[in-house]
């Protein structure tokens, strides 16, 4: 459990101190998680801002049944889901919810960040939303399947299923579009068979 500074000081500035600490500790993680959902830096910043405003509003009500970490992540996921569902987001993404396989087909039409890091990272980001989030939480943020199930409010089995399915789709994407990875591997197999 994260020990939050200011827990034992007067209530007046205590909440502001706690908020500052939580932002310092989790600000980057929240922003990244929002970006993993939305794929737009400015909108991710808006979401992160909304998340910490909600955190500030509900700090007194936080009952420490979960860690701050999962609590803040869960708020982030909820704000992102609301945002994706909102008419505004659907209007700026002409094909609607980015959670569907259309993303795969229309990746070239994307309005997201111009350069999304490296080639493999971009392929991960091209996964349908529900698989992408599980993959990034597991592999990039190193959450356990149990923690992911708490954050996403789904069963641990569902997390494992999504991880498995996400890996499968990612393999397909990498083989279909990112020939270089497959070529390297094929090369190795050929070498082995030569030996």
């Amino acid at each position: 459990m994260v020990e939050v500074p200011g827990k034992n000081t007067d209530r007046g500035d205590r909440r502001s101190e706690q908020l500052e600490y939580l932002m310092r500790r989790f600000g980057g993680k929240v922003l990244k998680l929002a970006y993993y959902h939305i794929r737009d830096r400015h909108q991710a910043e808006d979401i992160a801002q909304e998340v910490f405003c909600r955190v500030f509003k509900n700090l007194d009500g936080f009952r420490e049944e979960s860690s701050y970490y999962t609590w803040i992540y869960r708020i982030t996921v909820n704000v992102c889901r609301d945002y994706i569902r909102s008419a505004y987001f659907r209007r700026i993404l002409p094909w609607g919810d980015p959670g569907y396989t259309d993303i795969l087909k229309k990746s070239e039409e994307r309005m997201f960040e111009a350069a999304e890091g490296g080639e493999v990272f971009q392929k991960v980001m091209d996964l349908p939303l529900k698989y992408r989030i599980v993959i990034v939480l597991y592999y990039f943020e190193e959450l356990t399947t149990n923690e992911i199930s708490e954050v996403l409010k789904i069963g641990e089995n569902a997390v494992r299923t999504r991880l498995c399915r996400g890996r499968k789709i990612l393999k397909e994407l990498l083989v279909r579009e990112g020939g270089s990875h497959e070529r390297q591997e094929t090369g190795r197999i050929v070498e082995k068979s030569k030996g």
């Binding site: 502001s16 908020l19 500052e20 932002m23 310092r24 600000g27 980057g28 922003l31 990244k32 970006y35 830096r41 910043e45 992160a48 801002q49 910490f52 405003c53 500030f56 999304e116 890091g117 490296g118 080639e119 493999v120 990272f121 392929k123 991960v124 990034v136 592999y139 990039f140």
Partner: peptide, 23 residues
């Protein structure tokens, strides 16, 4: 490798401005 790429991608993001906005 993708994790490293993601860390590089996010490395120049400035979280200070977010903090100011939230406060």
């Amino acid at each position: 490798k993708a994790k490293v790429e993601s860390e590089q991608f996010f490395s120049d993001w400035n979280y200070e401005s977010l903090k100011e906005k939230v406060i």
